[in-house]
Amino acid sequence: MENPTPEQVAQALAELVQDALMRGESVEIPGLGTFYVNHRGSTTERLPDGRVVLHPPCDLPAFTPEAS
């Protein structure tokens, strides 16, 4: 496969980024930007009626565009 189609490239790129982010690594794509993992710790939110909501920690995919 010498000349991959853009759809193939997009799929390969998505898989690659997902694998890297699942390992906790950041991926820099030249001309586009950097994908990285944004970790948020658990938080508590106090509602106005007195109840408290406990938010679990989470890892979010994040993106920073390349400075042009």
Partner: peptide, 25 residues
């Protein structure tokens, strides 16, 4: 440039904390 991750990507990245829901006390 703003990026909105796909739900499949978000779930895959959040695999360490999968299944955790906010709890109201």
């Amino acid at each position: 440039l703003q990026f909105e991750p796909d739900t499949s990507l978000a779930q895959a990245v959040n695999h360490r904390f999968a299944g955790l829901e906010p709890v109201t006390v």
